[in-house]
Structure formats: structure tokens, C-alpha cells
Design a protein around this nucleic acid. Structure first.
Length: 275
DNA sequence: GTGCTTGTTGGCCA
DNA sequence: GTGGCCAACAAGCA
């Protein structure tokens, strides 16, 4: 599930209770796939007794920064989630990392283990964080950059291109479909086949969907919706895409579904004509 | 039992 | 070397 806005939602969940708080104890499922490439003993040593100073979300990645130079990175993969539990929480089968505070426990749960826990110790931020592509909502995400990328991936279907994290950080399957639907572009269109006006539409809708998704899913300011999808309007493709016999919220026509770019893709044939 | 699944990576091939 | 495609990873769900 977790794409850009959902990642921010989960970051806030932990940040709201944990910022400024001290980690008293840590539970880990050592040897699990989510810790691949990570020095778990070093993580435990560094973070036990450490205070969370700040946290950030970028792309599908989160960073939790601790006083003294501990950097905890989390990627939620396909099925990961973060939640806050009582301090007596007993780690379940899929709770691979639990950080215990005085009054609560921060739980990272991931049944399918496509997610990842990263850890870095030192003064400088780790490269797995600093080398992320510039955010879609930053000034660096320009129309020109998008146009150049579409030329480079000339023959790839738009759907596959939008899933490339090196240019569209944080976009996942549902956001890609939402963007193409709003931009009225068929997901199978080859990247190089877009007119300048269509390229501009794609660029604009990338930014718009990211901004709207953040507002709806991750809330504004300090507020946080109770549930992930509770704030998503019926006017979005998102709420219709998995329904059997789902209809396009704009045209009322039946939605289509097929595998494009290796992923299940939903589009509105009435709105997004064939290439 | 079968056949899916909102992510990423590495291998193969043109 | 680059780009495109696909299987693999693991578990849950219908």
C-alpha cells in the first residue's frame, strides 16, 4: 500500500508520540529479510537510550533522526505499516522492530517483508537518504526534466515510466493510475509519443496528485486522519479502481483493467483513449 | 487448491 | 552501456 502520502501518514503516527522521547528498549526479529544488509546489533546499541529529534518522509522512505547521530531508515515495501501500541505490547509474528518508550511502543509491522529497516551512525546523513531523487513537489521537479526523461524512456509505456523512482519518487501503482487518469493519457502510450501539451498535463498532474494525496491522507499541519483512506473523495479514481464493475467518476463509463508495465493497471477508456 | 496483491532488485536480452 | 521485461522475494486473502 504505502506510497508517498501513506508514508507521510505513518511517519506522523510515530512522530506525534515519539518526537523528543527516549527509547528505553528495543525488540527486533533478527535475521528477518527486512534487516537485509543492516547491522542490527549496532542499531540496538545506538538507539537504546537515544532521543528522537526529528523525522522526515521522502519518496517511499522515512528517516528518524536521533540525538548523537543515529539515523533510522524505514521502507514499508508492499505491506508494511507503523503504529503506536501500549508500552506492554508483545511483538507479534510480523512486528520486526518495536521501539519502547515510557508510555507507548512504536511498532514496525510487515507481513510480506518487502519493506526494509536501515541504520546509519555518524555525523552526516546516510547516502541512502541523501541520494533520493528530488521530490515531485520541489522546484527541482521541472517540466523540462520530465520531458527529457520521457524522451530517454521513449518506448516504455507511461505506466512503467511513472513507477521509476529515480524520476518520480514516491509514485506507486495507484498514484500512477490516478495521475494518468487525470491527465487523460492512456497508460500504454509510449513515453515519447506525447505532445508538448500532453507532457505538460502529465507533469502538472504528478504534482497535483501528490499535493492532494498528502492533504487528504496525511492531513494538514499536526492533524492526522484516523484512518488512511477516510479522507479520499469519491471523485478520485482511487475509490473505484478495485471495484468489480467500477465506473469512472467523471464519465460514468466502465473502467478497464489490464497488466501494463508489469503491473495491474486501471483506466477509463472513455477518458483515456487508446494510443 | 488457485491466483491474485498499492515494491524493489537483479538477470537476461535486444 | 542502455533500456525494457520478467521472475523472485513472502504472506495473506478471496
Amino acid at each position: 500500500m504505502p506510497e508517498l502520502a501513506e508514508v507521510e501518514f505513518y511517519r506522523k503516527r510515530w512522530a506525534q508520540v515519539a518526537t523528543g522521547a527516549r527509547i528505553l528498549r528495543i525488540a527486533t526479529h533478527d535475521g528477518r529479510r527486512v534487516f537485509r544488509g543492516t547491522d542490527v546489533p549496532a542499531l540496538r546499541r545506538a538507539l537504546t537510550g537515544a532521543t528522537l529529534v526529528s523525522s522526515h518522509a521522502a519518496a517511499k522512505q522515512m528517516l528518524f533522526c536521533f540525538r548523537g547521530g543515529g539515523w533510522l531508515g524505514l521502507h514499508l515495501g508492499m505491506s508494511g505499516e507503523l503504529f503506536v501500541a501500549p508500552p506492554t505490547h508483545e511483538p507479534g509474528r510480523h512486528d520486526h522492530l518495536v521501539l519502547y518508550l515510557r508510555e507507548s511502543a512504536l511498532v514496525f509491522r510487515d507481513p510480506r517483508m518487502f519493506g526494509r529497516v536501515l541504520f546509519h551512525s555518524g555525523r552526516e546523513a546516510p547516502t541512502w537518504w541523501t541520494q533520493l531523487a528530488p521530490p515531485i513537489l520541489s522546484a527541482a521537479f521541472t517540466l523540462e526534466e520530465v520531458a527529457a526523461y520521457l524522451r530517454r524512456r521513449a518506448r516504455a509505456p507511461l505506466k512503467a515510466v511513472l513507477l521509476q523512482q529515480e524520476r518520480f519518487p514516491g509514485i506507486g501503482n495507484w498514484m500512477a493510475d490516478e495521475i494518468l487518469w487525470r491527465a487523460a493519457l492512456h497508460p500504454a502510450r509510449p513515453a515519447a509519443s506525447l505532445s508538448p501539451a500532453e507532457t505538460r498535463r502529465l507533469w502538472r498532474e504528478c504534482r497535483r496528485v501528490c499535493q492532494l494525496a498528502l492533504n487528504c491522507i496525511a492531513g494538514r499541519g499536526q492533524s492526522l486522519p484516523a484512518d488512511l483512506n477516510v479522507g479520499i473523495p469519491r471523485s478520485w479514481l482511487f475509490l473505484h479502481r478495485w471495484q468489480e464493475g467500477g465506473r469512472c467518476p467523471r464519465t460514468g463509463c466502465r473502467l478497464a483493467r489490464a497488466t501494463i508495465g508489469g503491473r495491474t493497471t486501471c483506466w477509463s477508456p472513455a477518458r483515456q483513449p487508446r494510443p
